[in-house]
């Protein structure tokens, strides 16, 4: 198992290198001159040229990429063009907010999603089932920003229960978490339902019934444990999406997290920050995937056997 984890961690290196290459290339070809942003409208051509020279922007693409990767290996993500602070510091400062948001959203999505999914599966084809699945469909179809705006309008403006922007108080977390979490909740609910329905008809569920087990224990002890396997994948993918979704949600709700930092940086052509941000989220994504594969082995013993047989 430990061998497997180490192998997976080593395999992360080329993936992350790939990420740096893609991000670097994209930003390289993005029009707009960061030097203009740094110096303002009054910049003289000489000053711009000087900055280009200082930052090595006149070098060819591969040389610039090479320098970037070497710096990365030294733990240097570069400095922000706008205020000169190290990118690493900027990101670490904002990361807790983004992670908090993603975790709370995941918690909401997972708890509600699984509960709704189970009830829908048990009461298959009932009114409750149909209602749940209709809501889930709405949840999946509605884009985050639109959901966010509607929530703001209802709870912030009309009812005035919750603050519509900012960070720092408990109330600030609720609307953005809901915005990010509702879509995922809908997907998890649908996944749970179909996964449960598949398990409910298995022979081993009948075996559990024949043993005289209570229905409630059959659901939690036998059905859910098996149904959970595909649900975990969904949750993991959703967690990644929530991190990505934070870009939009943080902007809408004016939360000073990594997502908002990236959007602001794109607007000001602050490339090192954008690169750093994307790399950070990619890292979290990869670790998240690895974590899921490890959790798999614990939920499904067959996976564990395969892992130990593989070596």
């Amino acid at each position: 198992m430990i061998k497997y984890i180490v192998r997976r961690l080593i395999a992360l290196i080329p993936v992350l290198l790939g990420v740096t290459l893609i991000v670097f290339t994209l930003l390289y070809f993005t029009p707009g001159d960061p030097a203009l942003v740094m110096l303002g409208d009054e910049a003289t051509p000489e000053a711009i040229a000087q900055i280009h020279e200082e930052l090595g922007w006149n070098d060819p693409f591969w040389v610039r990429y090479f320098h970037y990767v070497v710096d990365l290996l030294h733990g240097d993500l570069g400095q922000s063009y706008t205020n000169g602070r190290p990118v690493f510091e900027l990101l670490i400062e904002r990361l807790p907010k983004t992670i908090t948001l993603a975790l709370i959203s995941t918690a909401i999505a997972v708890t509600l999603g699984i509960i709704l999914g189970i009830i829908a599966a048990i009461k298959q084809n009932s009114i409750f089932d149909n209602l749940c699945m209709l809501l889930a469909l709405v949840g999946i179809s509605m884009p985050h920003f639109w959901q966010g705006l509607l929530l703001m309008l209802l709870f912030g403006v009309k009812l005035g229960w919750l603050p519509i922007s900012g960070w720092g108080e408990v109330g600030n977390v609720i609307l953005p978490s809901l915005t990010i979490g509702l879509g995922s909740m809908a997907i998890i609910a649908r996944m749970t339902r179909s996964s449960m329905l598949e398990v409910i008809n298995q022979d081993y569920i009948n075996f559990a019934k024949a043993k005289g087990q209570k229905s409630s224990r059959i659901i939690t002890g036998h059905e859910l444990r098996n149904a959970l396997i595909p649900i975990i994948t969904t949750i993991a993918i959703q967690f990644g999406n929530m991190l990505g979704g934070s870009v939009i949600t943080e902007t809408i709700f004016a939360i000073p997290g990594v997502g908002k930092l990236m959007v602001d940086s794109i607007r000001s052509a602050n490339y090192p920050v954008v690169q750093g941000g994307v790399l950070l989220i990619a890292c979290i994504y990869c670790v998240n995937n690895l974590l899921v594969d490890v959790i798999y082995a614990f939920v499904d013993p067959r996976v564990k056997t395969n892992l130990s047989n593989a070596r």
Binding site: D203, N206, A210, Q213, H222, R225
Partner: peptide
């Protein structure tokens, strides 16, 4: 429920699919 598994029991046709794949057989 109290009779099932206790006074009246059932052996299923296919042992490959009748045991819960994620629970140790002793526990089952």
């Amino acid at each position: 429920r109290k009779l099932s598994g206790n006074r009246i029991t059932l052996i299923f046709q296919d042992p490959m699919t009748s045991l819960n794949p994620v629970i140790r057989v002793g526990k089952q």
